[in-house]
């Protein structure tokens, strides 16, 4: 695959990468920064990309590793996630855009309360449509781990979205 084709395919994937990143990171500006950093890393590693295989999973893996690197780099500097150095510029444009979809805003807010390990599986499986096996490959964990995290994440999300879910029978085990 030539560089042009690679870039074309990557560009076409941007909306999905942004969606994945938003679900995973929970912050629009940080999500776009993650997408950009991942595209840069993917470009440097474009020789390793096998044409014909799924670029989405490949990019998700890069974003996964990149985010882990960032968190590690931040903790090595003694900066915790959410500290000033990692505060990213607020994207007012985005805020206006999501006003059109209150549901997205609400879901993102609730997902932000969940641990990243839960957000990741939510981002990969129900949102991006990967199978449990594909998600396991991206995350580098066993399929069983993906399934248990995902089941817990979905139950927790629904519980927080619907405080009275118990009445509807959703909270019963």
């Amino acid at each position: 695959m030539g560089s042009t084709d690679f870039k074309t395919e990557l560009t076409a994937l941007l909306p999905r990468l942004r969606r994945f990143a938003l679900a995973k990171v929970g912050d629009p500006a940080a999500a776009d920064d993650l997408v950009q950093a991942a595209c840069e890393r993917a470009w440097r590693a474009r020789d390793k990309w096998v044409p014909g295989t799924r670029m989405d999973s490949w990019m998700f893996t890069i974003m996964q590793n990149l985010h882990i690197d960032e968190i590690r780099a931040a903790s090595a500097r003694g900066i915790n996630e959410g500290s000033e150095a990692l505060e990213l510029v607020e994207d007012h444009q985005w805020s206006r855009r999501v006003e059109a979809g209150v549901a997205l805003d609400q879901v993102v807010r609730i997902m932000r309360q969940l641990p990243e390990s839960m957000r990741e599986v939510l981002a990969l499986v129900p949102i991006e449509g990967l199978s449990y096996q594909e998600a396991a490959a991206v995350l580098g964990v066993p399929v069983g781990t993906v399934m248990s995290r995902l089941a817990r994440a979905r139950a927790e999300l629904m519980r927080r979205l619907q405080p009275d879910a118990g009445a509807a029978g959703w909270a019963t085990t």
């Binding site: 942004r18 679900a23 994207d91 129900p126 139950a155 629904m158």
Partner: peptide, 22 residues
């Protein structure tokens, strides 16, 4: 509940695909 969570997540994040890329 699991079905609803899938529908809800897919539906909620769908608009992101239609936002212009910055």
């Amino acid at each position: 509940m699991f079905r609803a969570s899938g529908r809800l997540l897919r539906g909620a994040f769908e608009p992101v695909l239609h936002q212009p890329v910055p």
